[in-house]
Amino acid sequence: ENVVSAPMPGKVLRVLVRVGDRVRVGQGLLVLEAMKMENEIPSPRDGVVKRILVKEGEIDDTGQPLIELG
């Protein structure tokens, strides 16, 4: 899985990584606010952040691509 998608609709509060960062499975990639709760979205695998497809403050839909890993 190279693309991390939104598991729920919500607002992107914080992006915790930058392009080029090495990430490990379970590491937080970004924080979504949904139903007044903050949810940290973890990396599904080890890899390198290739692209960040959303910006802080954006509203996303379920299934929307958020981050691409390489």
Rank of each mutant, 00 (worst) to 15 (best):
A6P: 04
V54Y: 05
P65I: 11
G26F: 05
V12W: 00
L53D: 04
P65A: 11
G26Q: 03
D46V: 06
D21M: 09
E68P: 03
M8S: 10
G20F: 05
I52W: 02
A6T: 06
L13A: 05
V17M: 00
G47Y: 03
I67T: 02
P44D: 06
R22F: 14
E1G: 12
E40T: 15
N39W: 15
V12F: 00
L13D: 02
Q64A: 13
R51V: 09
E38W: 10
K11S: 04
M37I: 13
E38C: 12
R45D: 04
R51M: 10
R45M: 14
M8I: 09
I67A: 03
R51F: 09
K50Y: 12
K55W: 13
P65N: 06
M8A: 08
V4Q: 03
E40N: 07
V54F: 08
L32E: 00
G63R: 08
K55G: 09
M37F: 10
R51G: 07
R14V: 07
E33F: 14
K36R: 12
V23A: 02
I59Q: 10
P9I: 08
I59Y: 14
V31S: 02
P9V: 09
P42V: 14
P42Y: 12
G47S: 04
G20R: 04
V19R: 06
V15R: 00
P7T: 09
G20D: 04
E1L: 14
K55M: 12
G63Y: 07
G26W: 05
V23S: 01
G57T: 05
V31I: 13
V49W: 00
G26I: 04
L32V: 10
E40K: 09
M35N: 15
V48I: 13
R45Q: 09
E38H: 10
S43P: 03
P9E: 07
V4P: 03
R24S: 11
R51Q: 11
V15K: 00
L13Y: 04
I67W: 01
I52H: 02
L30G: 00
A34E: 05
R18I: 08
G26A: 04
K50H: 10
R22S: 12
E68A: 07
P65E: 06
I41L: 08
K50R: 11
E1F: 13
V54D: 01
A6H: 03
S43W: 03
V48A: 03
G10E: 01
D21N: 04
V15N: 00
P9N: 09
I59N: 09
V19A: 07
I41M: 04
K55T: 12
P7Q: 07
V31N: 01
V3A: 06
L16H: 04
D61H: 14
Q64I: 10
V15T: 03
L29T: 01
M8T: 08
I67M: 11
P7D: 06
G10S: 06
V54I: 10
E1K: 13
E58A: 09
V48R: 07
I67P: 01
L66T: 02
M37K: 12
I41Y: 03
P44F: 05
L32K: 01
V48D: 03
A6V: 05
S43D: 00
K50P: 00
G10A: 06
V17K: 00
P42Q: 13
L66C: 04
L66Y: 03
G63D: 09
R22H: 13
K36W: 11
E58V: 11
K50C: 14
I59L: 11
M35R: 10
D46I: 05
V3Q: 07
L53R: 04
V25R: 14
E40Y: 12
K50M: 13
K50A: 10
G57V: 05
N2K: 09
E58K: 09
R45F: 13
M37W: 07
E56V: 14
R18Y: 06
L32W: 11
D61M: 13
L32M: 14
Q27Y: 04
Q64F: 10
V12G: 00
P65H: 08
V31A: 02
S5A: 12
R18K: 14
I52E: 03
V31P: 00
K36L: 12
K55C: 12
I67L: 10
L69F: 09
Q27S: 05
G20C: 12
V25L: 12
R14C: 10
E33C: 15
L69T: 01
G63F: 07
Q64S: 11
V49F: 00
R24G: 07
Q64T: 14
L13S: 05
V48L: 08
E1S: 13
T62H: 10
D46N: 12
G10Y: 08
N39T: 14
R24C: 12
L30K: 00
G63V: 05
R14E: 05
R14K: 11
P7I: 07
E40P: 07
R14T: 07
G28P: 15
K36D: 15
V54A: 10
N2H: 13
P44R: 04
L32R: 01
V49H: 01
L32H: 06
G28K: 09
E33G: 09
S5T: 14
S43Q: 00
E68V: 15
I41R: 01
Q27C: 05
P65D: 05
N2F: 15
R14S: 05
G20N: 06
L53T: 03
I59R: 08
K11M: 09
E38P: 09
K11Q: 06
D61G: 11
I41T: 02
N2P: 06
G20H: 06
V3P: 04
K50F: 11
V15W: 11
L69N: 02
R22D: 08
L53M: 12
D46C: 10
E58Y: 13
E68W: 11
S5K: 14
T62D: 07
R51S: 10
R22G: 06
T62N: 06
A6S: 11
Q27K: 04
V25C: 12
D60N: 15
L16T: 03
K36N: 15
A34G: 10
E1Q: 13
D21A: 06
I67R: 01
G26D: 03
Q27G: 03
R24T: 12
L16E: 02
D60L: 15
D60H: 15
G26T: 03
L69S: 01
V19G: 03
E58Q: 12
V25M: 13
D46R: 06
V25S: 10
E33Y: 15
E40Q: 10
R18S: 12
L29M: 05
G63C: 11
S5Q: 11
V15S: 00
L29H: 00
L13R: 05
G26K: 03
V15G: 00
Q27V: 05
V17L: 02
E38A: 10
V17P: 00
V31K: 03
M8P: 04
G47L: 03
R14W: 06
E33Q: 11
M35D: 14
V17A: 01
I41H: 01
G20T: 04
V12E: 00
E56R: 08
L13V: 12
Q64N: 08
K11A: 05
R14N: 05
Q27H: 05
D21G: 04
G20M: 05
S43C: 09
G10N: 03
G26R: 04
Q64M: 12
R22A: 10
V49S: 01
L16V: 04
V49T: 00
G63T: 08
M35V: 07
G10H: 04
V4F: 04
E33I: 11
R18P: 01
R18E: 10
Q27E: 07
V54G: 03
V19D: 03
V15D: 02
V3S: 07
A34Q: 10
L69V: 08
I52R: 01
N39F: 15
T62P: 10
